[in-house]
Design a protein around this nucleic acid. Structure first.
Lengths: 235, 235
DNA sequence: ACCTGTATGTACGCTGGCGCGCAGACGTCG
DNA sequence: CGACGTCTGCGCGCCAGCGTACATACAGGT
């Protein structure tokens, strides 16, 4: 996710592959639609396919005690869904839900495994991305523990902006509450503050980021830490 | 971490390797001491070696805002320190601190990379373990967010017991506070409650688990979830 | 124009954990 | 034996976020 480059042609990870390999990989993919609300994987489902989003963004959500939910990862065209396969695991352990509609290149697990077993760039890139997720998760644990809702919300909006490649996207307070693991009211208050400060503007689920810099100043350091982790992990 | 097997001969991950490969790997290792308080890796340090603990246990700790600390992983003879290398990353991103003295088989990064590049069992096992850590981290995010200190403490004591292979170990409230990211007083209160209920007994840092079952009932479901993740990830 | 569903705003008491400060209890070592 | 350092216990006011409930506002369909 370099600072000011245009959106990658398809998917940032695929873009880093050598041309020949990228062609070969893309040829085995189906270009599919990702529709907001769609569940790509259930928590314990066997992974039968891998997604390289080219637009839109997908939340990874854990459920504990059969009710409490919380987002533990956000994947867009900078990442891939299904890294578990590249690590030799069969199931993901978390639910993947489309939060912002878009499209993805979808590859069957069989094709992916075959390609991975060649040990070429795709295997390498995917594993490096898996490690980025490890670092981001470590950060997330601390963030969730120590940072207040307002800062976490600001961070989340910035992360989403980066993946949506737009300053406006659809997200209700209710959904944001689930993402951050807080009550809807907690979001309403925090978002209200951000709006009063002219950092964002929203109405019935349509959020617009007005002042990216100001929002970043309000967010916790974890936003930058995440970007750094990505930058250092995926060249 | 099977329920009632004796401690593995050396390290559980190494034990799963085919004999020939295990011999070869072990031959390249140094048997080193892990001393409580020792820092195995600094957060951004380049990984120059990998540890397979054979006893003792090591905490992975993140620091945010230059002060707040929190444990995001606990590794004993069921795991390995330095999985990042198997994913193609150079630095860990978290600090590794020995919490319980013991020993480990230590391998140079060069030897480890060479062995990994052969693509044999070690590569496979290490990557599967990396995925287990991914799952455990996801769980940790939710646990840290939703569960009260008492349950998290109970969970932590059980996790430590499994790695120490003993019901008694040394851990002050202060240290436990850092592990769980709470004040020392928070631990004192929670531990006091557990002691009153005859689940544990402690004095000046020496903690003894008296009633493992009772403790498990008090702990959150995350303890079992972690074990399940390990069991399903490392055969 | 009305009705219904969804989205947002506000209020109120509660609780878990915080920051701080201090007091006792135990060990160790000079 | 005494002094000091470490570990544990407790009290106080404070605050972020919780659970719940209710009120408003806007959008789209009939």
């Amino acid at each position: 996710m370099p600072a000011k480059l245009p959106a990658p042609a398809l998917n940032y990870l695929l873009d880093t592959l050598p041309t020949r390999e990228r062609r070969r990989v893309v040829a085995t993919c189906n270009n599919v639609a990702l529709t907001r609300g769609e569940v790509l994987y259930q928590s314990m489902q066997r992974l039968d396919r891998v997604y390289f989003p080219t637009s839109g963004f997908v939340s990874l959500i854990v459920t504990v005690d059969d009710s409490a939910q919380l987002e533990v990862g956000l994947v867009g065209d900078e990442g891939v869904l299904g890294v578990a396969l590249a690590l030799g695991a069969a199931a993901l352990g978390v639910q993947a839900v489309v939060q912002g509609s878009g499209r993805a290149l979808c590859m069957s697990a069989a094709a992916f495994n075959k390609e991975i077993s060649l040990g070429k760039s795709l295997a390498c890139v995917t594993r490096r991305y898996a490690f980025v997720q490890l670092r981001q998760l470590s950060q997330m644990v601390a963030c969730t523990r120590f940072h207040v809702v307002e800062a976490r919300l600001a961070r989340w909006l910035l992360m989403t902006r980066d993946r949506a490649h737009a300053d406006t996207f659809y997200l209700t307070h209710e959904l944001l509450g689930t993402m951050l693991g807080v009550r809807r009211v907690g979001i309403t208050n925090a978002a209200g503050t951000l709006q009063k400060r002219n950092l964002i503007q929203y109405s019935r689920g349509n959020v617009t980021i007005l002042d990216r810099r100001g929002l970043k100043a309000t967010s916790c350091s974890c936003y930058q830490a995440d970007r750094d982790a990505y930058a250092s992990g995926v060249q």
